[in-house]
Design a binder for these strands. Structure first.
Length: 200
DNA sequence: ACAGCGATTGACT
DNA sequence: GTCAATCGCTGTA
């Protein structure tokens, strides 16, 4: 269970998005570990991606996306929810992968308390749900994911093989035809919202 | 200074 | 299927 190094993140966003599936997201909180396997993500690029926060250039909110790879980009949306991304690409090149769903692995009871629900398939199956389950908020924006503290990713090593499916991204209006949502096929913990454009 | 709206969720018809 | 909640970022003035 080694912590993913900066070199894992410092690559093309689409590559990182695909390879991050199956990795474990670890949140240490109150001296316990909350762990989920990443089963659904979306890739967001920079000035060439109309659906990206970075499309119109660097601002106070999206600054982390323009920094080096391997940091958490956490933003607040709809007045209610936080969403977690990991930054990609080299310094000054914008890119991030949105973590959309986890399969709960460890710390289920704490996640249930944090969410106020018991059904494991509803615990972390959505970008706003998983941040609430793992207590991820604005204080973790800009957090270095390679330190192995508070919030980080690990490679679980040996695991069952899986098929990767791609669809259009959820909840966006621009560039809905780009198949940049990646998910583990037949995994019951992915989010349930369907993309506006189903791709074959 | 301010109107508009969002990489969502949950409740309700 | 429809829709309100809720707040702070962003573009325009």
């Amino acid at each position: 269970m080694s912590v993913l190094p900066r070199s894992f993140y410092r690559r093309e966003t689409l590559i990182v998005a695909e390879e991050i599936l199956g990795k474990y997201l670890v949140r240490t909180y109150n001296k316990q570990k909350l762990i989920g396997k990443i089963v659904e993500v979306e890739a967001y690029e920079g000035p060439l991606d109309p659906a990206s926060h970075a499309y119109r250039g660097k601002t106070a909110r999206n600054a982390v996306m323009f920094g080096d790879a391997g940091f958490a980009y956490v933003y607040f949306t709809y007045g209610n929810h936080f969403c977690l991304n990991v930054t990609t690409e080299r310094e000054s090149v914008a890119g991030a992968v949105l973590i959309r769903a986890l399969e709960p692995i460890e710390g289920l009871e704490a996640m249930k308390r944090n969410r106020g629900v018991n059904d494991p398939t509803s615990l972390t199956s959505g970008p706003g749900r998983l941040t609430k389950a793992l207590k991820i908020g604005r204080e973790l924006n800009g957090h270095d994911l390679t330190l192995g503290q508070k919030l980080y990713l690990v490679d679980p090593g040996m695991r069952q093989p899986f098929e990767i499916m791609q669809t259009g991204r959820i909840g966006i209006r621009e560039a809905v035809d780009r198949p940049w949502r990646f998910l583990i096929e037949n995994n019951p913990y992915v989010s349930k919202t369907k993309p506006s454009l189903i791709q074959n």
